[in-house]
């Protein structure tokens, strides 16, 4: 199904590449190096992120566990953000990247609303080095690196090798082997987006929206403060 997409889904299509990421949560130690690498690679300003590591504690003492959940754009094979973009500013590359054309973006935020994974943000206008601002931005799977045969910055820097990147259509790639040999989940599979970030052994409180709401007082207050600050036009006076 390629309704409104510039490239049809390439997952499992012979002769085509389909870049994907596997995140092995057994290996993630929550060091946030991936977040820092991403910030450095793209000069991502304060207050917005292309990738994050969500952290949540579960259980009660002494039976507790801290879970880490790296999150990024899922580069869906059927991306709703692309279908809903009124200017085709966001588009799907034939190898699976979901990319953004800054010069076309009108910042209507339809793509932000369409993304089930909260993976998009608006770049502030007042940036020091990179002058791209006032438009929607997102993770690109570091397409500029991948084209040169490198892996994305977050994968390169991941010290536990929790993030693994490759062509899932190639049966000999590490991502294809990991997906074949381990039970993996994708986020919100019921939305029909066919996300291409696969998680090994995630915690339910981090994968399901209804159960992932903040539970601690501090996190709830943070969410409320963020919402109160950003609702309606304050968003633009505050960030843009």
């Amino acid at each position: 199904m390629s309704l409104g997409l510039q490239a049809p889904p390439s997952l499992g299509v012979p002769g085509k590449k389909r870049w994907a990421m596997v995140i092995d949560l057994r290996r993630c130690i929550g060091c946030m190096a991936c977040v820092c690498a991403d910030k450095a690679e793209y000069d991502v300003p304060l207050g917005v992120w292309r990738t994050i590591v969500k952290v949540k504690n579960t259980g009660s003492y002494p039976n507790t566990k801290r879970h880490f959940m790296p999150r990024l754009c899922n580069h869906c094979d059927n991306p709703p953000c692309v279908r809903n973009c009124p200017t085709e500013a966001t588009y799907k590359h034939e190898e699976g990247f979901v990319l953004q054309r800054y010069e076309r973006c009108i910042t209507c935020r339809t793509c932000i609303a369409a993304c089930p994974y909260n993976a998009r943000h608006v770049l502030p206008n007042n940036r020091d080095r990179v002058k791209i601002g006032g438009v929607v931005d997102k993770c690109t799977f570091c397409d500029h690196r991948v084209e040169k045969g490198l892996v994305p910055a977050c994968v390169q820097t991941c010290l536990g090798r929790s993030r693994i990147f490759g062509d899932i259509n190639d049966p000999n790639s590490e991502v294809a082997r990991l997906v074949a040999r381990n039970s993996t989940v994708v986020l919100k599979p019921g939305k029909g987006t066919q996300p291409q970030v696969y998680y090994i052994k995630p915690e339910r409180s981090l994968t399901e929206q209804a159960y992932s709401a903040p539970v601690s007082y501090a996190a709830r207050e943070d969410a409320r403060a963020f919402y109160e600050h950003n609702r309606s036009s304050k968003f633009f006076s505050g960030v843009l």
Binding site: V48, W49, I52, V53, K54, V55, K56, N57, R66, R71, R109, I112, A113, N118, A119, R120, H121, P214, V215, S216, A218, A219, D222, A223, F226, Y227, N230, R231, S232, S233, K234, F235
Partner: peptide, 16 residues
């Protein structure tokens, strides 16, 4: 209890 999340919102406010 430590908990961390990053928040993005559309935000379609009163103008819309």
């Amino acid at each position: 209890m430590f908990e961390f999340n990053q928040y993005n919102i559309a935000p379609w406010g009163y103008e819309i």
